[in-house]
């Protein structure tokens, strides 16, 4: 689905790896390893200084940028909702290509387990957890093939984080989404991921299946990271 070939950018050094269709990959490792930068490379919010990235076998530059960004959806750490109502936010992506279908909000709100009557609420009047759900629904409105998640629950309290995680798990399983998620929480990685990429000092130090690689780390760096 997505392939990096000798990609270097900022702290990232010479990365080569593949994300296959239906993979649920977890990017983890110490802060400053360039994990968020990597997500930005997936949907061209940044371009690599060196190397090549392929999307479905095609060099990423050959896919029109806006199409790529709609197909490779990104959910940021904070909801970053646009001023207005929940519905305004849900419509945003599809409206850019005039593909919003009236009534689509029903399905989207159901995906993120929010009641339908929330659609006319001003986003400023929502709780943090509700805002993050709306943000997720807004990303899903573009019907992405790949979902990039940048620590989607780190800004939330434990209970809300659990709820969002639950929503994500059900969504990904129900729709067979390909997912790449950055997280610092190893228990979350175990629950949501099938494949792990451990990043250390700008390189992928170790890859493997989840949760296996967390129970039986091969490298010294991963062992140390897991002990911290």
């Amino acid at each position: 689905m997505i392939e990096f070939k000798n990609v270097s950018h900022g702290p990232l050094e010479n990365l080569s790896f593949k994300i296959e269709q239906n993979d649920r990959a977890i990017l983890f490792g110490p802060s400053g390893a360039g994990k968020s930068t990597m997500l930005f490379l997936f949907n061209r919010l940044k371009d690599p200084e060196q190397g090549e990235i392929f999307y479905k076998g095609k060099p990423i530059e050959e896919v029109p940028i806006t199409t790529l960004r709609q197909k490779v959806g990104l959910l940021l750490q904070s909801p970053n909702l646009f001023p207005g109502t929940v519905l305004d936010n849900l419509k945003y992506g599809p409206s850019l290509t005039n593909s919003w279908e009236p009534g689509a909000e029903e399905k989207l709100l159901e995906y993120v387990q929010l009641p339908l009557d929330i659609k006319d609420r001003d986003v400023d009047h929502l709780s943090g957890g509700q805002q993050q759900r709306v943000s997720l629904a807004r990303t899903l409105a573009n019907e992405p093939e790949v979902l990039l998640l940048d620590e989607p629950t780190s800004a939330l309290d434990n209970k809300t984080a659990e709820d969002i995680e639950h929503v994500l798990k059900e969504l990904i399983e129900a729709h067979n989404l390909t997912m790449v998620m950055v997280t610092h929480q190893m228990d979350q990685a175990r629950r949501l991921g099938t494949k792990g990429l451990f990043m250390h000092e700008g390189r992928i130090q170790e890859t493997g299946e989840l949760p296996g690689m967390l129970d039986d780390p091969k490298t010294k760096e991963l062992k140390e990271y897991l002990q911290e």
């Binding site: 919010l45 806006t66 960004r69 959806g73 990104l74 904070s78 970053n80 945003y92 992506g93």
Partner: peptide
């Protein structure tokens, strides 16, 4: 910047993203 990144990542052109 967060909102701008969100708008761009949803497929907005810079003009649309910076409307706000």
């Amino acid at each position: 910047s967060g909102r701008l990144l969100a708008a761009l990542s949803l497929g907005a052109e810079p003009k649309q993203a910076s409307h706000l």
